[in-house]
Computed example of a mutant assay.
Amino acid sequence: MKSSLVISITSFFTNYLPNIVGYSENTVKSYRDTFVLLFKFADEHHLCPRGRIVIDIFNKENILQFLEWLETDRNASVSTRNQRLAALKSFSKYASSNLIEYINTFQQILDIKLKKGTSKTVDYLTVDAVSLLLKQPTSDTHDGIRDLALLSLLYESGCRVQEIIDIQFGNISLKKPATITVIGKGRKVRIIPISSNVAAIISAYTAKYKITGSQQFLFTNKHGEPLTRSGVSYILQKNTDIAKKQHPELFGPKIHPHVLRHSKAMHLLESGVNLIYIRDFLGHSSVTTTEIYAKSNPEIKRKFLEEAAFNIDGIVNKFSDKEKQTLLDWLKKNI
């Protein structure tokens, strides 16, 4: 018979995370990886009989040693260490309500503080860099039109990589005003306006690839399967490498898909869009009267976003260093 601890762990992953708090599949997998690593650590350090899960594993001192092991033995960053601790705290909060006899054990885990690390800088591309990047895919080839559609939409929408991967043809409306519907973290749905230029690229791409079914994934590999994160990264890096040969000063040493999300946020700010609308656009809005107003009145959000729609040949307005730093600080904290 399974122990109450094992039953709680199973319920935590199969019901609580996906159904009660609505965490995404990727977040659930990240939490799962934390537990896999914890049990690996417990086996290696003989904290429990091999292959068994016992409450002793969750002793505060063991958890602290586990966190140090992540950094020293597995070369994890402070950020990764804190993410693993966040997963354990989430379970401890859940277990405190379901395993009353162990409430003191889990409360001690909840009392563990996050470790402070050096501040991360936010990577983003200038307007010139994005413009050059989007000129690299050749739209007259099969792969080229797909790459152009992917990179254009990734930047235009400010979507997370997984949100782009999950987009199906039925999530797109190419009639004016064009929009895409995405499901973000916490399964929150948001409707994002896209420019007529990007809508035309998507239209040409779907016509060339004969994408017509509402449940067809928008971006697929040569096997007809949805693109993976590594697939998206490969396409971005491939085109970045070409652009970098022309103007190496525009690109940093490492480019990843999230850079386009950061870049979109920065360019919206440069164009005069208020942070409230940027936060709503990215799917990280807080509960304030103004943001609720923006959400409940799509035309207001559309007005600001369409006025700031990226124009490859356009001129970007100047913005203050203080405004720029405000967004950078917010991005580091929330994205």
Rank of each mutant, 00 (worst) to 15 (best):
K2Q: 10
I20P: 00
Y23K: 14
D33F: 14
T34K: 02
L37M: 08
L38H: 07
F39M: 08
A42V: 07
A42H: 07
D43V: 02
H45Y: 14
P49F: 15
K60A: 11
N62E: 05
L64W: 00
E68A: 09
L70Y: 11
T72N: 05
A76M: 05
S79V: 14
I103A: 11
D111C: 01
T118R: 14
D123T: 13
D123M: 09
D123I: 09
T126A: 08
D128W: 02
S131P: 00
L134H: 07
L134W: 07
K135T: 11
Q136H: 05
T138H: 11
D147G: 06
L148V: 11
L150K: 01
E156H: 06
I164A: 02
I165F: 08
I165Q: 03
G170T: 09
R190V: 12
I192M: 05
S195N: 03
S196L: 13
K208R: 13
S214F: 10
Q215D: 15
H223N: 12
E225S: 12
Y234L: 12
Q237F: 09
T240I: 15
I242G: 01
P253S: 14
V259M: 11
R261W: 07
A265L: 06
H267K: 07
L268V: 03
G272K: 06
V273A: 03
N274V: 10
N274R: 13
L275V: 09
I278N: 03
F281D: 07
L282W: 07
S285N: 09
S286D: 14
A294H: 06
S296L: 13
L305V: 09
I315A: 07
K318M: 04
K322F: 13
N334C: 04
I335M: 10
